[in-house]
Write a protein that binds this DNA or RNA. Structure first.
Lengths: 138, 138
DNA sequence: CGGAATCCGAAGCGATACTG
DNA sequence: CAGTATCGCTTCGGATTCCG
């Protein structure tokens, strides 16, 4: 593989949380739901139990590979359950756990914040882009 | 809302976007703060005005390249201001805007959720990993 | 001090093919 | 239906160098 040398490459595991402000754990939750598809899956499952194909159809654009990876990670973190019925053809149901439902509250906060500031951000971007032509930042 | 045939079992609907399977602006805000460093910068700036080097020292592990990119994007989105003093050596100050301060409230919600569920997630992971040896999922 | 420019490995993700 | 395996492109991000 590409592991050429045995040097440790991971540095700075956490930020200094000694101050009065709590920044510990923020990266944890962002590493979990900050990816491209997790929140969309969670939002769909907030509506009720869903099968694999149902999820794929409910989240347009997701590949079955990413759907598999995403639900596996969510299951691993205890946010959803995966129930396999040994039928033919196979049937697998996904459902939010209690903790998964708790996550939907956080997701709602994200949605609310986004809805509240989307316009202002769009305007800020236009102004910045107009003022910084060809800066490479996007 | 058109989803009316089955009610969610344990808790309230919470996250219904109003549409059936519409992408609320959740991805917008996650594309903005879901990256590796943005929230950490915002958290640090929540303490007050900071200079470039101050930020770099306050966020251990960040490269100067990523710090530049991150503050540029935050500035572009109207979340922070960048003030350049034409002194020698140059001095640049970063500060949260009003909208940036509003973002800190959301970040606090993230931190609270993380602190509240970190242990449960860690335990779920241990159980899953023990039950699925060498699955490749991480 | 506060960047910009370049290089390059690592990670994310999509497309496709195959399986039980 | 519900995956798994492989490939390859694209993005992310760290390290380094140079510059006003």
């Amino acid at each position: 593989m590409s592991v050429g040398h045995t040097e440790v490459t991971t540095t700075a595991p956490v930020v200094s949380c000694g101050e009065e402000h709590e920044d510990c754990g923020i990266r944890d939750v962002l590493d979990r739901i900050g990816d491209k598809w997790s929140v969309l899956i969670v939002v769909e499952l907030a509506q009720g139990v869903r099968r694999f194909r149902q999820l794929q159809r409910a989240v347009p654009g997701i590949s079955q590979r990413m759907l598999t990876l995403t639900v596996r990670r969510l299951e691993r973190d205890g946010l959803i359950t995966r129930t396999v019925y040994p039928t033919v053809p196979p049937q697998v149901e996904y459902e939010l756990t209690t903790m998964g439902h708790a996550l939907t509250h956080l997701v709602k906060a994200l949605a609310d914040w986004s809805a509240e500031h989307r316009d202002a951000i769009a305007r800020a971007r236009e102004a910045w882009d107009a003022e910084h032509p060809g800066s490479g930042i996007r």
